[in-house]
Design a protein around this nucleic acid. Structure first.
Lengths: 214, 214
DNA sequence: GCAATTAATTGAACACCGTTCATATAAAAT
DNA sequence: ATTTTATATGAACGGTGTTCAATTAATTGC
């Protein structure tokens, strides 16, 4: 009943997170329970609370790993310098990842910790890193001095990808459920929009008022 | 102990859904519990199960009402015939609704019933009705025979709005948390994209291959 | 008006859940 | 060998959704 030291703290964390991901893959993140994970790795629930702050913490760390995996997947091959091509690659690779790990990705999208509305810095850093990827992809469309607008566009880009996969996964109100087509539709239109705004008025977002641009 | 008939079945449903919405507004949909709702309306949990299939059913019906409210809000004023203006109105009104009822809208976005992955027809109909609104707004950009592409674009439009508000509400990784700006950025770029594709190649979505067009 | 039927409401019970914590014990330090 | 420290335990607390036999009020048939 005490101090087994079969595993170090790190090993335990590894065991628990692996088990949690296994369950989430098979039965969705809602099926991940403290008791279930503990039983599966041969410990009792109380032990998990030595390693994780609570179950939300465990799930958030699981999602952190998924974000890492997505980042690794997207950056596996170099991203083109041509913005249109880079955007298209980003969309395609994102779509491929989501298709490959639908439930793990659903966990990232659907779960949010209830205790304390602020997400921890290490988690936000992982999200920001992905947004940065988008920001770099569209960088060619923006001049110096338009960093704010560029960042906003990257957020929008990311949120839209997010929304398209979320809707198509959970409440799927598309007839054919063809996520790839929807993503392609979005990317194409978004690229066209950026190009048009580039040529016309240097990335203005509001209908009135023209940016000075460097 | 039995048969009070203080309220009809319909009244009971009304009471429960109103109470659920009240709780969701104040403390989020996760705080809506069978016991809590029952206590608040002066009944016991068991009674709720005569009126609703289960708690998921109750929450889904609550969300159905929110979808109705959004539809009513968006269609309160007539929508412009000019696609760009219509789209901008749609985005603005959507943003206003979400800003006014953040937690009720979060319920629509975040909640999904676990039992049975398929959403009931009456719920999907409400979602489809909203998508139809977007489809009508962008109709001017599409020629006859492009109904499929038009519908896809409407789905994309809706999903993107969805994603932008979802991200900005729950995990908010934007610095300034300015949902209205992000929605405006998206709408502007999307309009520009649609207009460009209209002029260039009749709404093709794929990089290669040109549609015949009517 | 009374008895039989029907329908609604209950409350206890079941099987879970996350979380806490005094206790016991194994390992480490003295 | 003894003290100290760290860790795993399991029981317990207060919650959850959900089911269902029993109870009782309203309704119906006579």
């Amino acid at each position: 009943m005490a101090r087994r030291s079969d595993h170090t703290r790190e090993e335990l964390k590894e065991l628990a997170l692996t088990e949690a991901a296994k369950t989430a893959r098979r039965r969705g993140w809602r099926a991940v329970t403290a008791r279930g994970v503990a039983r599966a790795i041969g410990y009792t629930p109380g032990t998990l609370y030595n390693v994780f702050k609570n179950l939300d913490d465990l799930l958030l760390q699981m999602n952190g790993r998924t974000l890492d995996a997505l980042y690794a997947h997207v950056t596996q091959a170099p991203v083109s310098d041509a913005p249109a091509e880079a955007l298209r690659q980003l969309g395609t690779r994102y779509a491929a990842f989501v298709a490959k790990h639908p439930r793990l990705w659903a966990a990232v999208m659907e779960f949010e910790p209830k205790r304390g509305s602020e997400l921890p810095a290490w988690y936000r850093a992982r999200a920001v890193r992905l947004v940065g990827l988008g920001e770099r992809a569209i960088a060619g469309y923006f001049a110096d001095g338009q960093e704010e607008e560029r960042q906003r566009s990257a957020y929008v880009l990311w949120s839209a990808l997010y929304g398209i996969t979320a809707r198509n996964q959970s409440t799927r109100f598309t007839p054919d459920d063809d996520t790839a087509h929807l993503l392609d539709n979005f990317i194409t239109t978004y690229i066209a929009g950026l190009e048009r705004l580039r040529r016309a008025g240097r990335g203005r977002t509001k209908p009135k008022g023209r940016a000075k641009g460097a």
